[in-house]
Design a protein around this nucleic acid. Structure first.
Ligand SMILES: [Zn+2]
Ligand SMILES: [Zn+2]
Ligand SMILES: [Zn+2]
Ligand SMILES: [Zn+2]
Lengths: 137, 137
DNA sequence: AATAAAGCTCTAGTCATTAGAGCTTTAAGA
DNA sequence: TCTTAAAGCTCTAATGACTAGAGCTTTATT
């Protein structure tokens, strides 16, 4: 149905990345043509779209591998999937709050005005000395 | 004055990382003892503290290299330092807003409740199909 | 003198790709 | 049918910022 270039266009996943996913065992090894070229079916496209979407949502390859494995057994409990999503949400929240603290400090630093030369540069001084910061990073 | 382990304790930078910074040209090669061990002076400690703080604020090694180079010439214009700080602030802001969009989508996904098995799992369905999302990532 | 702690170099692994070299296969036009 | 261009293949190495480990030497303490 699709050669790798077509699959790449359909999903937005670059060709070397598709081959990498194959090597990592995220997608099944596709059928090869007589000339050794990868040939994908609709399921291959669907699985790659799933992976692309999960990656766009920031999930790790490991998380995705578990989700992919899971989704091949419809009768199993989906508890693990809920845990992964939940855990990842927490992870993103933590990341955001860390970045917000950073942003605060950086705003203070980046908006400093000074005489314009290195010797008395307030930005360089602020980077040199954490005691000038209001909080932790 | 300090051996590498002491420097590490003082700054919170791990020993292999200090050696890595040396190799990258971020810190000067220190004097060696007769037994080939690195021996740092006060300036070495100060420079490493600078680097640590800038890293904690999220600056890249490349940015830090420029700042370090710059700070050795006090008479030069510090325009470049201001640019780096500014640019980095923008970078952090962009990152935060991307993560917030992600958080929104993930909240929607992670808090879904369903019948508890993979076949009808709403989380897995949401990951499989971006059309179920409200926005871009 | 013996032992332990801390230092050294060098290599390789992490994560998720991406780039490039050097080759073969396939499709299309002359 | 021949030729060329596009697209595919494998394999290796690079990215960024470390980190871990093997196998060795130096230093400090008992
Ligand atoms: Zn300045
Ligand atoms: Zn600080
Ligand atoms: Zn479910
Ligand atoms: Zn989506």
């Amino acid at each position: 149905m699709y050669l790798i270039g077509e699959l790449s266009k359909q999903t937005g996943v670059k060709i070397p990345t598709i081959r990498y996913y194959e090597e990592m065992g995220l997608i099944e090894k596709p059928h090869r043509t007589s000339g050794n070229q990868r040939q994908y079916e609709k399921e291959g496209l669907e699985r790659l779209s799933f992976i692309k979407h999960a990656r766009d949502l920031g999930l790790s390859i490991e998380d995705i591998r578990e989700l992919v494995d899971l989704s091949s057994s419809p009768e199993k409990s989906c508890k693990q999937a809920h845990e992964i999503a939940h855990h990842h949400l927490q992870f993103i929240k933590t990341k955001i709050s860390k970045l917000r603290r950073l942003e605060k400090e950086l705003k203070r630093v980046a908006l400093l005005d000074d005489e314009g030369h290195v010797g008395k540069c307030k930005i360089i001084a602020s980077l040199a000395d954490h005691r000038l910061c209001k909080g932790e990073h």
